[in-house]
Design a protein around this nucleic acid. Structure first.
Lengths: 190, 190, 190, 190
DNA sequence: ACGCTCGGGACTGCCCGTTAAT
DNA sequence: ATTAACGGGCAGTCCCGAGCGT
């Protein structure tokens, strides 16, 4: 191995978080094992505790990381287009079959939602903070009479997005999954 | 201990399913352990496999059980009132703080979320079947021009209900949780 | 079910022993489970202890039963033919591919041998008694100058028979298995 | 505890295999429990899977180990003496009362018997490979007209050795056990 | 100081031989 | 002779922390 560059540790740290972010969304909190994760990051499991105090600390960090990524992706989807179309673009992006079929690279909320409510405060804080960001982004591209109204609409919109994706993923047959996705899109776009 | 009345086995079976249904929603699929579950039902782990072929079989049965209960509760909430108000009653019941704060006795979907999608086909089937029932009930009290439209609206409504409850539960502070709940209610009731 | 005939219990008892005898030789002492055995005899596992004091008692009885059967079959193989050919007939029967490939209906010694030495005295007694019978039968068709010599030859013959079958069954590939069988036969028949 | 000399892991690995080899012959494949084995090696069962992929993998390795040891011991017994006496020496060593009375340190074949045939291919392969070695060693000190004849004689000799030891161990009383041993020796030495 | 090797102990789902109550 | 339950045991996996090189 090359001698440790000063930024080496940070890079490793980030790689672990990044791998964890993917596996978390694919397999859930309990489905991720420290050993497997470290191996997929090219390390052995012993080194894990040089980077994180515990598995929980990693999960919390990975949560923040993913929420930030989600916010960024939503922003990007809404940014390129004219203001009026931005909300629609965002919804289309969120409720796409691609997003449904690739949880590992998508939004954490439908992927982990329920599990997060059972975890400790550190994880919930990390999650809540990201959630607020998402709400703000959606509110920004929501046309409404007042900012309060826009925020309220945004909350409901996010709820529908999340619920729709969740149901679509859990549905046993793909016909139903597609029907759910379509219904969600239709309802949000009037 | 007195055992073995003619209906004894059925009662025990139901007690186990019932306890599992609660723990399932509180702790998730992986969080339920056979030994702990049996103990909470007043038994030891040894007898479990006389009642269920596997843990998965139990979870599937518990899923059906809970979904049926949810459907029943939604029906009941919508039944007592005049047709036009039934949808509102149903929404109020689902998005109540009581429902948010007691996952163990509420709907499985926001309680288990993505975990359902990761489990085997038996569990997903059980869940999907119950989901269809819920869709039908909601569709019945949704005023719309055509049955197809009613179903589509119902799917979206359920998605919003589920997503709202999920977000409200995951939110770290209770102010946010209440705000989310209110926003969902407002959006669904126009 | 018909009301219990006086001999009913005996019949059931024998059926259990008979099933056990087959499964024992196929799967070994540890490989036989009481529940599975009773089910294969058409009963529920609870009734087992009305017939046998313990699993060990059953194994002992099944051992005697099988050893008796083996002795009988050896006798039969040696009986039909003229005295001089009887030893050969017996050897051919024992070292046949059919015997090698169907442990469930064959001799217990190569099927259980090593395991029996680890079991309790009841089982070992049952086994030893049967073993003496087998020695006697083989000695009877062994031409020798003195009875002592005949017995000694018989012991060695049985050892070779048993060892050959054991090796042939344990060999991973069937070519080797056949080679072993042939070598044993050749050695015993000069 | 002091850990982690450069060769530490190998030593531990070997210690586990070595303990397994003994217990295997004493208690059979099913009689060896991972937890008990590790404890007897001075460890806890948690570390087992850092050394072996599964219990089956360990058993296979232990089998190879024991067969190699047996081959070596047979070689050693045959080596010290003049060519003509080597076969006799080998037989004396195998059929000694010491070998009969200490299965834990002896040959696996009579110790495991039919259990080997019931295990998975990994174990059977390991066993078969060792068996071929033994055949070769015995063939080498078997005087015969052709190599084919020597091999055939060797197979039969091994079968008799194994069968004799198996019977001697299974016999309930020690008089019979000794008689069997003597008969086997007599037959093999003409 | 970073990372790896090695190990510890708790836990999970599952199965078994056995027995008390019916 | 059955139904139902018991309690101990199994192999396997997990998170985590000592001890040790580089």
């Amino acid at each position: 191995v090359t001698r440790y560059a000063p930024e080496h540790k940070d890079q490793v740290h980030r790689r672990i978080v990044s791998r964890a972010a993917v596996q978390l969304r694919q397999k859930g909190v309990r489905g991720v094992s420290v050993a497997e994760l470290m191996q997929s990051a090219g390390l052995t499991h012993g080194g894990f505790y040089a980077h994180f105090a515990s598995k929980e600390a990693l999960i919390a960090e990975a949560c923040s990381h993913v929420m930030a990524g989600t916010a960024e992706r939503l922003s990007a989807a809404a940014d390129g287009v004219e203001p009026l179309a931005s909300r629609a673009a965002l919804i289309e992006a969120y409720l796409s079959p691609a997003h449904r079929d690739d949880p590992g690279r998508g939004c954490v909320i439908p992927a982990l939602g329920a599990e997060l409510g059972r975890e400790g405060p550190a994880i919930r804080q990390a999650f809540s903070a990201g959630l607020q960001q998402v709400f703000d982004i959606v509110a920004e591209c929501t046309p409404a009479s007042t900012p309060e109204q826009a925020r309220q609409d945004a909350l409901a919109t996010v709820a529908t997005l999340v619920g729709t994706l969740l149901l679509a993923r859990a549905a046993a047959d793909s016909t139903l999954a597609t029907e759910i996705l379509d219904a969600g899109r239709a309802a949000l776009l009037n």
